[in-house]
């Protein structure tokens, strides 16, 4: 049978990553399954949910919602949401944790603080342009719009769509 020492080590290997996830620093690899405990609230027969959507300019100069699967292929379609959450990759420079006092902490967060170099930004633009061209859109601009949708709980249809925020990214 497994020894107590093994059981204790196994427990540590499970609990430490779980605790880190609770602190928003999910490690990988770790034996963790998806949580997603957020909820929606029903008021007067509807719920309100915020969605970020990506738009491209079609050849007729009209903004059209980009189909995530086609745009991201062969990467998983769900990653488009993460791209929008990351400002389409145009990271903003965030302040150092602990005012940058600890070199090890700075090292760990070096890719999360943002501040991409010019060549990195150029590569990012080229990558986005390539994706847009592949999906049949103009490559000059891309738009990310945040909508607050009201969804009826009677039939699940969107009854109202309010624009909350709109961001344009110049790619030329």
């Amino acid at each position: 049978m497994y020894s107590t020492r093994f059981t204790f080590l196994l427990l540590l290997c499970l609990i430490i990553p779980f605790s880190l996830r609770l602190m928003k620093y999910e490690p990988y690899p770790a034996v963790l399954l998806p949580s997603g405990p957020q909820t929606v609230k029903k008021t007067q027969g509807s719920i309100r949910m915020e969605f970020k959507q990506v738009f491209g300019l079609n050849p007729n100069n009209n903004w059209k919602r980009i189909e995530p699967k086609e745009f991201m292929h062969p990467a998983p379609a769900a990653y488009l949401t993460n791209l929008t959450l990351k400002n389409m990759g145009f990271k903003e420079l965030k302040p150092h944790l602990f005012n940058g006092r600890y070199a090890l902490v700075n090292h760990f967060f070096r890719f999360h603080r943002g501040g991409a170099t010019n060549s990195n930004t150029e590569d990012l633009r080229d990558w986005l342009k390539g994706r847009l061209a592949k999906s049949g859109y103009q490559t000059s601009k891309i738009r990310v719009s945040t909508y607050v949708n009201t969804i009826s709980t009677a039939n699940g249809e969107i009854t109202k769509k309010e624009l909350k925020e709109e961001k344009y990214y110049d790619l030329d």
Binding site: L20, P27, Y28, F90, K91, F111, N120, D123
Partner: peptide, 12 residues
């Protein structure tokens, strides 16, 4: 993927 999108999990 461009380097600008490289944001690995902090503990990995």
């Amino acid at each position: 993927l461009p380097k600008a999108l490289y944001t690995p999990p902090i503990i990995s």
